[in-house]
């Protein structure tokens, strides 16, 4: 069970559209996340970033478009099947399981890759026992040490400070044997120091595990520092993508974030997006 991290996967989104009733959350979105890269998905509030994430992890069904993972079309797959394939995600509003300890939360991440059945579990015998102890050992050696959470492993997650909870979520995602990590606002609500810690952990994951990482993030400083590729969404559409430096200089991006300051231009932009819909 102490195997090497799984090979990083390449994610490609082609022409994805998603609407809730009349509201178009995503319109014809296409981008790619290269294997082993850190790609950031940014955009103003309500741009459709989290909707995009929910489509990728299988919680929403897009009306149009495809999601390819290493060339395989996964659009029709259910969320648990994608998890098994190697899609591991964290959540914007931390989704740890309050009734479990840190260790159990992390172990839960491995669920889809374990095989023991109910009878073995009731007896805690044979495969179930071996599997559990091997998992414990692997988590201790590869994840708990790595993320520096040794001191809290037996604590209930509810009692942890926010920053540590985010780290436990990352630990759980790593336990999922990820081929692509989907991080939804990994540093939201953190102070400078916690943000830097988390940025370091994300870079370390890329270095040591070689996992592909796609993240949604509002902290521009961090995005520009650690991303290889940036995709900018606005009103459900991709308005720019490229290297951090290119995106930063793009006037459309500046306008999306700051507005043009001109009401007529704003109206024009809204009309355009409505026509595009």
């Amino acid at each position: 069970m102490n195997e090497a991290p799984r090979e990083a996967g390449r994610l490609e989104v082609q022409g994805l559209s998603l609407s809730f009733g009349g509201l178009k959350a995503l319109r014809d979105v296409s981008f790619a996340v290269e294997a082993g890269s850190i790609t950031a998905l940014i955009g103003p509030n309500g741009a459709g970033k989290t909707s995009m994430f929910n489509c990728i992890s299988g919680f929403y069904r897009p009306q149009q478009g495809r999601i390819l993972f290493d060339g395989e079309n996964v659009t029709a797959r259910h969320a648990p099947a994608r998890a098994k394939l190697g899609f591991a995600r964290t959540f914007q509003n931390i989704a740890l399981f309050r009734g479990m300890t840190v260790l159990d939360n992390i172990k839960l991440g491995r669920h889809a890759h374990m095989k023991s059945n109910a009878l073995q579990a009731l007896a805690y015998w044979g495969a179930a026992r071996r599997e559990e102890i091997a998992l414990r050992e692997e988590i201790e050696k590869r994840i708990i040490d790595f993320l520096e959470i040794n001191h809290i492993r037996h604590m209930p997650v509810g009692s942890l400070p926010y920053g540590l909870q985010k780290r436990v979520e990352l630990a759980r995602a790593l336990a999922m044997k990820p081929r692509i990590l989907l991080l939804d606002e990994p540093v939201a609500g953190m102070n400078r120091e916690e943000t830097e810690d988390m940025a370091r952990f994300i870079l370390d994951v890329k270095e040591e595990w070689g996992t592909t990482i796609l993240m949604v993030e509002h902290d521009m400083g961090m995005v520009m520092d650690i991303s290889d590729h940036v995709v900018v969404l606005n009103f459900g559409q991709v308005i720019a993508q490229g290297l951090p430096s290119e995106v930063q200089a793009d006037p459309r991006v500046v306008e999306a974030y700051l507005g043009s300051g001109d009401p007529a231009a704003l109206m024009k932009r809204i009309n355009e997006t409505q026509e595009a819909a």
Partner: peptide, 29 residues
């Protein structure tokens, strides 16, 4: 048997469903 169950992946999956069912699904359950 019940105590054993909650030392394994099946018991953890049950608790996960109790605490946050939708997130549990995205995590592979």
């Amino acid at each position: 048997g019940a105590a054993n169950l909650f030392r394994t992946r099946i018991g953890r999956a049950f608790i996960a469903i109790r605490d946050r069912d939708i997130s549990a699904e995205v995590l592979g359950i």
